[in-house]
Design a protein around this nucleic acid. Structure first.
Lengths: 262, 262
DNA sequence: GTATGTTGGTTCATTATTTGAACCATTGGT
DNA sequence: ACCAATGGTTCAAATAATGAACCAACATAC
């Protein structure tokens, strides 16, 4: 691993739960020497990628990443198009819609939209790390991912987020097969208790999944009619999103909206 | 300059005008050796910061920057709060409102909001680089920036974006003094022909300007009444934004909304 | 008030990494 | 068939990264 990778890998320790990290902590977490971490952070700070809090101590992400993200959106308007679909999805279903993408071996929630139809709703946070095995989004992606990626994810220890999380790799593989039949993954309380989610993957130019659209509702409101509606809308939104970002669904991919509506 | 800085500095060559860059071009632009650029880009690609287009050739910014930006927003909700104010500003004035921040020695437009009141409007692109001397936003920032920064910006060659762009450093300094009197900067056709902009700065925790809010309208629609309205709304929005991000306006800063309304 | 354990930051000889000229293999144009 | 690009690769030489030990500053504990 080169110096640049090492420096950039420091960024992976920042999370929603830990948006600011001190020098010593960062050195401990990364296992790197304190002096090394200091220089890496200083260099990244000079480039605006990170900055120090006004107390002068701990580090956090810098404003430059905003520029980079805006530029990325200009080149590949993934989130912009996704937000459009999310708005439509939550309006059509009256429930929370969210979008997440694969980044390395992680699944990151990047955008969401709430509906105002109900007083209670499933709440989301952007930049939250989701699990592949415990969420509908993750499962839908795994179902269409190549074997190597699936094996890699399922080889790691699978944490049980709730009592209902399926953590047995063999049983998860069975579910993945079922998912490819319908094109939709479901998770009932697998990540958060009392949340029923339905998801379908989004594909990149190489026909491999790059993310997922999902609708999340309280278990009680996810009636058969609702499931049917959610699937219809998800299929349409996913197809639109995949197409708009220049992606291609694989031959065995999620059904077209016509098929679903039937 | 360390290796990490050099690698990260490659990112600065990506712009709205040039969202994808090939290896040889990037080497030429940066003046670095082709092999060096190749390894830097490879390492950054491994971290998801950049990626290669499916034609396999040129590089562009990667999806990881979206995660980083989402995380930055979670830690410092600058854009979220700014967008709120932009919405209000464009609704209240019926014109285009936009927000830009200083990054290094550049001024970057990062968010905007259009009004639907008129058929014609000033259009903006996010992630666009603005000039300090040619825009109302830039001037408003310069007016409140420390001397060192102001000198640095005015020492560089000042390009004339339009025939109306003021490029004489001495005359610009005079205008900056006037700006500190009122708290607002104006630019009539200084960046784009037929665009009249009014801007006021946003301050960080150290009472130094970090960005600016602006309203841009076609010259003909920027009547005295409109200017007055824009200033009132800008002052309020800027004060709110500065406060919400934990910033402080300096003692000699832009007037409070009360003073302006008078 | 002193001792102790933090913290962020710095130093410098040793070491490992980056660097760049020259080199391929492809591609596209003439 | 040629030429001039392109992205990518190699390897000795040069340069930069590294890490143990070291500050000074700040808490907390005794």
């Amino acid at each position: 691993m080169g110096t640049v990778s090492k420096a950039l890998s420091l960024l992976s320790y920042f999370s929603r739960q830990r948006p600011e990290i001190g020098l010593s902590d960062l050195a401990r977490m990364s296992g790197m020497n304190k002096a090394t971490v200091y220089r890496h952070m200083s260099e990244m700070a000079a480039q605006g990628i990170v900055e120090q809090t006004q107390t002068g101590k701990s580090y956090r992400l810098g404003a430059e990443v905003l520029r980079l993200a805006a530029l990325r959106e200009a080149a590949v308007p993934l989130l912009e198009v996704a937000r459009e679909q999310l708005r439509h999805l939550s309006d059509a279903t009256g429930e929370t819609a969210h979008f997440s993408i694969i980044q390395g071996t992680k699944l990151n929630a990047l955008a969401h939209h709430y509906s105002t139809r109900h007083g209670t709703r499933v709440t989301m946070e952007d930049a939250e790390v989701l699990s592949f095995h415990g969420t509908a989004s993750g499962l839908s992606i795994l179902a269409y991912a190549d074997t190597a990626f699936r094996d890699q994810v399922l080889a790691e220890p699978l944490t049980a987020h709730t009592p209902h999380t399926e953590t047995d790799p063999a049983r998860i593989r069975d579910r993945l097969n079922e998912i490819t039949q319908t094109g939709f993954a479901q998770s009932v309380g697998g990540f958060e208790a009392d949340v029923h989610s339905i998801a379908t993957p989004i594909f990149g130019a190489d026909a491999r999944p790059i993310g997922a659209l999902a609708i999340a509702a309280p278990v009680a409101r996810m009636t058969p009619d609702m499931i049917s509606l959610a699937q219809t809308e998800l299929a349409l939104a996913a197809q639109t999103l995949t197409r708009r970002i220049g992606g291609f669904a694989p031959a065995d991919a999620s059904p077209t909206p016509e098929e679903t509506t039937a």
